[in-house]
């Protein structure tokens, strides 16, 4: 049970929580929030897998991938939230359900 293994399992757990709420929430804002949790969990898993070299050195390639991943995640979140706000301005609803509810 090493440091990286703990964080890898934690990352998987967080991604699982995010996935469950992404699938089960109706409110789109909550879906986007859950999507961020999925992303962070997977990043934790990826970077923990870079920390398990035998001599203690780290593999910098997953670090680079996750760094760009964090920035791409924030831009995707921003676009989704802007779309959501515009959708809400037009229709007044925060969900994609067919029936007339809020």
């Amino acid at each position: 049970m090493s440091t990286s293994l703990i964080y890898a399992l934690t990352g998987i757990a967080i991604a699982g929580l995010g996935l469950f709420h992404y699938l089960s929430q109706r409110n789109i804002l909550r879906k986007v929030l859950a999507g961020n949790f999925i992303g962070t969990g997977i990043f934790l898993f990826l970077v923990s897998s870079a920390d398990r070299q035998a001599d203690g050195s780290i593999d910098p390639v997953p670090h680079a991938l996750v760094l760009t991943g964090i920035v791409v995640a924030v831009s995707a979140t921003a676009l989704l939230l802007a779309l959501l706000c515009r959708y809400h301005d037009e229709t007044g609803s925060l969900t994609l359900d067919e029936e007339d509810d809020e």
Partner: peptide, 22 residues
Amino acid sequence: VHAPDLALAEAAIGSGITGALF
């Protein structure tokens, strides 16, 4: 997990900017 670059980016972007967006 020995990723200080990511710690800087996460604190600024992942917590700060994304929180401000929400």
